[in-house]
């Protein structure tokens, strides 16, 4: 019986944390995830582009606003920054500042099996 109560409690905690999680940042974490193609999973780049995870929030905003208004030159990023609102830039800065820096998994390279 004790075990059943424990499980119900667990379920409540899981559902509660899930719903607060969704309320807080569903739109932001989905937008932030879109940055992963160039900047890696949760902002942890494998190299060649800046790691956004744990980046200073004010610095993120300063750079992105600079790309947006043209005061900071860039090769690619102005094409993204100009398309984002100031609110979105602020929300992304806060999101990435909270992401832990992690060592990326090695890519699961495998020789071509030739079966296709």
């Amino acid at each position: 019986m004790k075990q059943i109560y424990a499980r119900i409690l667990w379920a409540c905690i899981a559902i509660w944390s899930l719903s607060t999680h969704a309320e807080d940042s569903s739109a932001t974490h989905t937008l932030a995830a879109s940055c992963a193609a160039c900047h890696g999973p949760n902002g942890n780049s494998l190299g060649g582009t800046p790691t956004l995870a744990a980046l200073n929030q004010a610095y993120f905003v300063q750079r992105m606003q600079g790309f947006k208004d043209g005061s900071v030159t860039s090769t690619v990023m102005h094409h993204h920054a100009k398309g984002l609102t100031t609110e979105e830039i602020t929300a992304l800065a806060s999101y990435f500042a909270q992401q832990p820096r992690q060592t990326a998994h090695a890519l699961p390279h495998q020789s071509f099996l030739g079966a296709q």
Binding site: A36, C38, L46, H105
Partner: peptide, 11 residues
């Protein structure tokens, strides 16, 4: 950058 894009989207 294109190589970095590939490695990051694969990851």
């Amino acid at each position: 950058y294109a190589q970095a894009w590939a490695e990051n989207i694969w990851a």
